[in-house]
Amino acid sequence: MAQAFTKAMARNIFYGGTAFFFLLFLALTFQTHSVVPQRDNHQAISDLVAKGKQVWEEHDCIGCHTLLGEGAYFAPELGNVYKRFGNSTDAIKAFIASRPENGVPGRRSMPQFHLSDEELTAVAEFLKYVSGIKTSRNWPPTPQG
């Protein structure tokens, strides 16, 4: 082949292209940082919400549920659960607290986590905070998640 298709040039394009597009990605990330505070509902983050996120994490809720569409697909989306439950943290608390110890025969059931009242309040407040995050096109498409 008369044409030079050289390894050196391929290497340069790999390094150059990667650096270029990574910098572009950083620039977009930078832009994201300047815009997100207008939509991330950070003003709603309190100690209680932080505690709630930890309760959420330490019970691996994401192992069954999705939150803003990410997680497992075994149980309902919870990013909008606060709205789905009629804008009520009490309803969320009651639901979590009332899960049967031994499940429902033949059906999926959420485990009974024996959360304290404080933990229940915290996780409900966390889900309330999440529902206030402004997602593009108000995802999810329907209240059902």
């Binding site: 044409q3 030079a4 040039m9 391929a10 394009i13």
Partner: peptide
């Protein structure tokens, strides 16, 4: 006529 455009062919893939 040459079969290949000027320069290293890799740049053309990139282009």
């Amino acid at each position: 006529k040459p079969r290949w455009p000027p320069g290293d062919l890799v740049i053309w893939i990139f282009i």
